[in-house]
Amino acid sequence: MLLNDFDKIVANLPYGDGFKFVDHILEMDEEHVIGVYRFRESEYFYKHHFINNSITPGVILIECMAQIGLACLGSHLMREESGNLDVVFTENHIVFNNTVKPGTVVIVSAKKEYFRFGKLKCLVQMVDENEQKIAEGWVSGMIINAQNTGNND
């Protein structure tokens, strides 16, 4: 896969700029993905999360791992499928070992555990630019038709 194809996957993720936690993909194949994100000092959540000692909320770190491990890898695995499909996050088990300060670059690696019946489960790990382990565990999600993600009222 060409780097340009990686860029297309990141560009086509169904998230706006304020909620896209993938800068680029370093490598990806049918079994794994490695991606990078830098938590910018200007991120909206730092203003309100531990005001005098800003750290990245754990739910945001999990979201970053899910976007790289599920959304990017899932998009790659589904590239042959027709239609407007997305991977939605369904469950996780993550253990945190460290915090992430504003300005930190994180590297997320995800290894496919299984992909069948529309469900993707990946083992994930997040380290910082100094290879210090931030978090590890697993995330899973389901493939859905993107038109069915709206409100059914």
Score class of each variant (00 low, 15 high):
F115D: 09
T104N: 10
V36H: 09
V10I: 09
Y44G: 00
C72F: 06
V88R: 04
E41N: 09
H48Y: 13
V106Y: 09
L2W: 12
D7R: 11
N12R: 08
Y15S: 10
F117M: 06
G74W: 02
P57T: 07
I9W: 00
Q67G: 09
I62V: 15
G141S: 12
R116S: 13
T104A: 01
L73Y: 08
I144Y: 09
K112D: 03
D5H: 01
S75N: 09
G103L: 02
T99F: 13
V106L: 02
D153A: 08
M28Q: 06
E27M: 02
A135I: 04
D5Q: 14
V100Q: 04
Y46A: 07
F89Q: 07
Y46I: 12
V105P: 01
H76Y: 15
I144Q: 15
R79W: 02
M142G: 00
E30F: 13
N12F: 07
H32D: 02
V124H: 03
F115N: 10
S82N: 11
K111V: 10
V139N: 05
G58R: 13
E80P: 09
E30I: 12
K47A: 12
V87H: 00
W138D: 14
V10Y: 03
M142N: 06
I143S: 03
G103M: 07
I62W: 00
I34Q: 08
E113D: 07
D153G: 05
T149C: 05
N151P: 10
V127M: 07
V139M: 05
Y114H: 14
T104Y: 12
V139S: 03
K112V: 10
G69D: 07
K121D: 07
F89H: 02
A135E: 06
V127Q: 08
V124I: 14
H24R: 14
E30Y: 05
H49W: 04
G35F: 09
E80I: 14
I143N: 00
C64N: 14
E129K: 12
L3C: 00
I68M: 10
V124R: 03
H49P: 13
L13K: 07
V124G: 06
G83V: 10
D153R: 15
M142S: 09
F19H: 12
L70K: 03
L123E: 13
A110M: 09
V124L: 03
M78N: 13
M1F: 06
V105G: 04
M126E: 06
T104W: 12
T90S: 13
P57I: 09
V100R: 06
Y15F: 15
E113S: 01
G16M: 13
K111I: 07
A71R: 00
G141H: 05
H24C: 05
